[in-house]
Design a protein around this nucleic acid. Structure first.
Lengths: 138, 138
DNA sequence: TTAACTGCAAATAATTTGCACTTCG
DNA sequence: CGAAGTGCAAATTATTTGCAGTTAA
């Protein structure tokens, strides 16, 4: 798979670098990470990658279609591997917890949206609301 | 309805001011507006409300439950009247156009999410994807 | 070799906050 | 009158960019 990635970069005139491998690795490990989280995760290990480079790399990875991004909190964009995008996000407004649900729960919904001529990207679906705990606590 | 609002404010020790009326009016007229848009909309009229006040007022209105907010573009939070929140947002990644669909298309989906113990807030649902035009253009 | 990439620092953009003055009730 | 609200400017936070030195191919 790493090879596919190198080919993908080459095709577009990009190069494979140590930093890019590290950033992609961090996104894979963290599953849902903000640029800031990727940056500090890498710093905690031997490897430090400049925050600006993290931003540039994440943008590149999104462009290549390897990584997706969603706004899971009102002030932070989080990135995740497309290969892991087999779920939708349920964000609780009460406690901020992000839980996941299989994309299948949105299949019927997706069909109706498609019927309107819009092709939804469920790998990025974020639903706000209240989790069971916060709903009962009111 | 304006009276309800005044009562709502009073109950919580807040006051009704000229600026608050203006901001709510702008949100109503613009339907989906960023703080910046509310600010310039008001400035184009005789009335100018400081941008910081716009932010403070929108936050208050959200708190009162009169206004909702969603991230329709990657860099801008937009606000809308809850009374108008009878639709979901379809945001095209290709052209950036925001179209609307009735909440009913998500009814079945909402039921499945509830079955998992999560109460979704469909008035804030934002779905990213590609509109018919951009999908065919590829 | 050489164009792409990186780190660093400075620049922007979006949003928040401190404070003295104004206004609602 | 007195607490709540506002404008203005400064502070924060998130993200982007310019540039000189580094590195992949």
């Amino acid at each position: 798979m790493t090879e596919d990635w190198v080919a993908l970069l080459r095709e577009r005139g990009y190069r494979m670098t140590h930093q890019r491998r590290l950033v992609l690795g961090a996104v894979r490990e963290l599953r849902h990470a903000t640029p800031e989280q990727v940056h500090s995760h890498l710093r905690q290990q031997d490897d430090a990658v400049d925050l600006a480079t993290v931003y540039r790399t994440l943008e590149l990875l999104v462009d290549l279609g390897m990584v997706g991004h969603s706004r899971l909190a009102s002030n932070a964009e989080t990135y995740h591997l497309i290969a892991h995008a087999d779920h939708i996000h349920l964000v609780c407004r009460g406690c901020g917890t992000v839980s996941e649900a299989p994309v299948e729960v949105a299949d019927g919904f997706a069909g109706k949206v498609r019927a309107q001529g819009f092709e939804p990207d469920l790998g990025h679906l974020v639903v706000y609301g209240r989790c069971a705990d916060c709903a009962s606590a009111t």
